[in-house]
Write a protein that binds this DNA or RNA. Structure first.
Length: 289
DNA sequence: CACCAGGCAAGCC
DNA sequence: GGCTTGCATGGT
């Protein structure tokens, strides 16, 4: 990777294994939207960013070297060698195809609070609707952010949400999930759950702690482990992964627990990466439907 | 071609 | 099995 600065834009060359569509459309995040064929714009970590990738050159618009160094290089997991990960996973023929299909996926390192709320909202929900609910949440309760001549909104803090009533929250149309969001905010604000502090916990303890939060079950906890705490052996199994795994690796229906155990055995420390390649590949190709 | 009714969706309790 | 909501689906 090579970094140069022109005006207020960060330009990266010699970037491998990175594709914006693969990364933003593989179901891990909900606040990035396509601008044109080569770029996306999103809000994350309290900042707005337009990112473009064309002919192997990444441009991050109107940002700073400090923000790149402190935030974006880690958010996009740029220091990690995904080529090595893919070549190891490709020993399995199914994964080989999945890696070739979603070759540019990177697992984002997202803010833990945003990730927690986002995946509480994701329960029994489709991506377009998840995105709409989160957008309403930000527009109604986030802080205004001015960027490249437009206004965007940050993801509202736990403190902000904890002060709301269920009636206030009804504007986001989250349905039965609204009470979980409110309860989660109160647990975080009240110190019952320390989202930073629990980073030191083992995977098992971290998951157990997160599952104390209402609205966080096995699957949602696995997503938070993978997308916010960089526990890359986490293998979230939703209905898609269940179908995909059954299709490729089993003769018949399986219990989620059994699929998870099988995946842990098969993919080990790379389970989370495998999950993302499989999900993106399987969903786009409607595997198991 | 509207329009409506019932099903159901990246789960959790 | 119930939960909120929105929407793709198929029937009229």
């Amino acid at each position: 990777m090579n970094l140069t600065i022109s005006n207020d834009n960060i330009v990266l060359t010699d970037i491998r294994d990175f594709d914006l569509t693969h990364t933003f459309e593989c179901g891990q995040c909900f606040r990035w939207n396509r601008v044109d064929d080569y770029s996306y714009l999103g809000v994350a970590m309290g900042k707005a960013l337009k990112i473009e990738l064309h002919d192997g050159v990444v441009v991050m618009y109107d940002t700073s070297v400090d923000d790149f160094n402190d935030i974006w290089q880690y958010y996009f997991d740029l220091p990690r060698d995904y080529g090595k990960i893919k070549s190891r996973l490709s020993e399995d023929v199914v994964l080989k195809n999945a890696c070739e299909y979603g070759w540019g996926i990177r697992i984002l390192k997202q803010d833990s609070w945003e990730c927690l709320v986002s995946f509480i909202i994701s329960a029994s929900n489709h991506i377009p609707r998840i995105k709409k609910i989160i957008q309403l949440l930000c527009e109604n309760f986030g802080d205004e952010l001015s960027y490249m001549g437009n206004t965007y909104f940050t993801f509202p803090s736990a403190d902000t949400i904890a002060k709301l009533t269920l009636d206030d929250l009804s504007v986001i149309r989250a349905g039965f999930r609204d009470k979980y969001i409110l309860a989660a905010a109160k647990m975080v604000t009240g110190g019952e759950i320390n989202l930073c502090g629990i980073n030191r916990l083992s995977n098992a303890d971290l998951k157990k702690t997160l599952m104390q939060i209402p609205g966080v079950g096995n699957k949602v906890a696995d997503c938070i482990l993978l997308f916010a705490y960089a526990r890359h052996n986490s293998f979230p199994v939703d209905v898609w992964l269940k179908r995909i795994m059954e299709h490729y690796y089993f003769e018949n229906k399986q219990r989620i627990d059994d699929i998870q155990a099988f995946s842990t055995e098969k993919f080990g420390e790379l389970g989370g990466f495998a999950q993302q390649y499989l999900f993106y590949y399987g969903r786009d190709n409607k595997i198991g439907l």
